[in-house]
Design a protein around this nucleic acid. Structure first.
Lengths: 220, 220, 220, 220
DNA sequence: AATGAATGAGAATTCATTCAT
DNA sequence: GATGAATGAATTCTCATTCAT
């Protein structure tokens, strides 16, 4: 049961602590920030980060150009915020979920289903994560890379744990397996998003990869 | 023995068929075109496609800004040409090589070693392929996606062939496996390029992934 | 005995005639208008008219941005009002005071002491008058210039009167002397405000200039 | 014999050492920088620094908007360069000229004639110097103020020298006299530029002020 | 009256591309 | 072919002003 990802799933925003509205003191407009973020996801997914004009995001969000800047420092901050609000929350959820499962095999399977399942319901987000998020070299290197590294380490830890328990083959290098697995999931999401992206298809891939990987790792 | 990739290795361009120099009739200074392409690889790798100024490529190549336009139609054409000259040749080589091998298992192993081996020697190229190439949304969708699709189909065919021979498990969907495998290789290259990128490390990963995948696919 | 200038000194606004608050009917919170004007003086003095944001004046005055517009038509009106409330009152006071003095020499000396003495107590105002007031080209030409011209004519009249009485040298062109004197006073205020602006220093300069000028003008 | 100031007077640009064309390597275009500077003087004088659009300067100079940025870092750099190319050269000339004269009285007279004489021929420049140059608070404080201070010190030194020789009254504070004199000259230039600005009029004022000041200073 | 979120016109600046030399 | 000065379209962002609350 992969929970829906992002906005539609309040479970991902406990207390909404991460929210930042630099110059906004008061009320309501929290939804305006959200509206802009959703609009940005939509437009970035269609045209890519660089080809997207700030005014296009504004129009898509139904606000004035200047309003964007009440909630975000710059166009790039829009992308960074997308990362923080969406991706980081996903990564955190995955970590949390894994912590509640014991069997290494089950943990990997859950991870795979979670990552792909979440994106299956949100094609635009999938495209933004696999494509747009990498368009800002700065975001990629200074911001995203470290987060992903942590995530990879989480996966590697699961693999290592499986090895310690004798479930996974000892000769596998955990970090290599983690990088390969993450790449496989990312690649599936990318090709899915760039292609037809039929709902359900991506989630279905999860079972395939999971079986493939687990059989590859299995010590038995 | 993974052959070196690209320019220094004429073996990969048997016919040079893919080369296009829109407005250039004679190819007197083919080496200037090459110098520009190498400079572009270097600069794109460091700063990304969008953050790179045409004048920076010119400076790095030791030519005047205008000279770039004698060999390339536009800045984007520089990226496209990089794709054509480098990536396409790699893909073609892979296909050619696979054609000369019979055993499905061996073919997959070779493919993996080829793809990672080539990039291991050219960090800049690896970064350009895994990062910059995705920065131009147009290049990605209109140009690269179809080529990669072909490539994925080549891989899928190998898997299907293995299934037909009874070597690989029948329940695996060949195209899914191909997408996952490609993603895994791409992800390994990406994380390698963004990280320390020690020469030899990436090539070493090849064995790991190969074993992992083949065991996962194996019918025995 | 130079009286303090401006707000704190109601003596300078016998009729308050010059005050304009375009859209304000009642003047319930005249002190809010005053607070804004003082805040503007402070901020304009520090940053200059153009570099000052309306929101900065609002913050400094402790009111909301929009409140400024309840009391002033525009940002420029803030400057114009500053001119009207402060400078015009000074000019009027000077005129009034001069009218009560008979001896030309004494009148010039008083004028000098009044102009410099007033600013000595209000560094911010001195800076606004010598710097910010010139930043709005429109204010300078359409508004301030005519007023200053009147003021110069007042001074010139004193000089001419002195000549008629045989106190001042006949070959001096009154208007030239007036422009030079005014410039000298303005320059002293400017350099004082831009520099250390120690209280008392500017007032002390008054005696110097007065002596210098009067000796220069004297027919004896 | 006050030399003409600025462009038309090559005497002021010995070897043209101060010229800067950041990104320009070669040739001819030195005159383009000059053309832009003249255009800027014209437009700044009419509309003031802030009300002037970069595109207006470009149009007035007959170049494209972007061309401005080949020669100047920013709009403000245009103003700074105007200061450097025009005002600094004037100040330097004054200093040089004074150095060749012995009698304090004669030196002050020359200084006055030089400063006013130069501007008399260039109304736009006079307006830029007395108005626009003060519109950028940063230019005024960080850049111009120190230069003017030097200039004031030069004047003060002349006064002090005159006192040492017994020519000028001992009770005058040299720096105060310098500030007053400079202010007087500046004020004359300002009112002249803002008014009719008939050629010759400003220069004529020089004699008046000179006489006034010298008589005021004189020990005899 | 007061507020401050929202607006959107406007402006500086950048940089891919051109073309006279 | 090669150059690089010049171009000007295009875009982000700012900030004075408005107006619903």
């Amino acid at each position: 049961m992969v929970p829906a990802f992002g906005v539609t799933e309040p479970r991902f925003s406990p207390a909404d602590a991460g929210r930042k509205s630099p110059r906004i003191g008061r009320r309501a407009s929290g939804d305006k920030r959200e509206r802009i973020l959703r609009a940005a996801t939509r437009v970035f997914a269609r045209k890519g980060f660089y080809a997207t004009r700030v005014s296009e995001v504004a129009r898509a969000a139904g606000v004035a150009d200047g309003t964007i800047y009440l909630y975000f420092k710059s166009k790039e901050d829009l992308l960074t915020s997308l990362f923080e609000d969406r991706v980081e929350r996903l990564l955190a959820t995955v970590k949390d979920t894994l912590a509640r499962i014991d069997a290494p095999e089950e943990r990997l399977r859950t991870l795979i289903e979670l990552q792909l399942g979440v994106l299956d319901g949100e094609r635009d987000l999938a495209e933004v994560i696999t494509v747009s998020l990498r368009q800002s070299t700065r975001l990629l290197r200074q911001y995203a890379a470290p987060k992903f590294k942590q995530y990879l380490e989480t996966i590697a830890a699961v693999v290592a744990d499986g090895q310690a328990r004798g479930d996974f083959r000892a000769e596998v290098v955990p970090m290599e397996a983690a990088r390969a697995l993450f790449g496989a999931l990312d690649g599936l999401a990318l090709t899915w998003a760039l292609g037809q992206a039929h709902p359900g298809t991506l989630r279905a891939s999860a079972t395939q990869v999971a079986t493939l990987f687990l059989r590859g790792l299995s010590a038995r």
